[in-house]
Design a protein around this nucleic acid. Sequence first.
DNA 1: ACCGTGACGGCGA
DNA 2: TTCGCCGCCACGG
Length: 126
Amino acid sequence: MSPLENTYLAPTAFAQRVYAALQQVPAGRVTTYGWLAHAVGVKSAQAVGQALRRNPFAPAVPCHRVIAADLHLGGFHGARAGTPLAHKRQLLADEGVLFDAQGQLVEPWRLWSGQKTMPQSPMVFS
DNA sequence: ACCGTGACGGCGA
DNA sequence: TTCGCCGCCACGG
């Protein structure tokens, strides 16, 4: 492919910081767009979504382990619904992340504490 | 250089 | 509780 018809966009410096932080998240655990944003030093979780949206290194860079703060699944391969999301849920399930009968994420921390806001410190929770 | 657009998050109605 | 609005900020057109 000639340089002129190469449409591949190299990751920006910002995206690379996001990917690097994301690699800290082990299989079977998840983080959120917001915590990831905090980890790379920006206040916009949306900007993190921008970077993950075009992640060229999936699933080596485990963007399927990033969910939204309200515990909905977020997106996958640019899609916010449909089969890509089923795939994302399956990847997580295969790693041992728990889902209930309704397909909703079961989040142990919430079950233990009963709180409705996110804990401050850990970037990763299960 | 400017502007609209999100794989978001949180607060108020 | 759900819904809308607005602040957030990197990116692409």
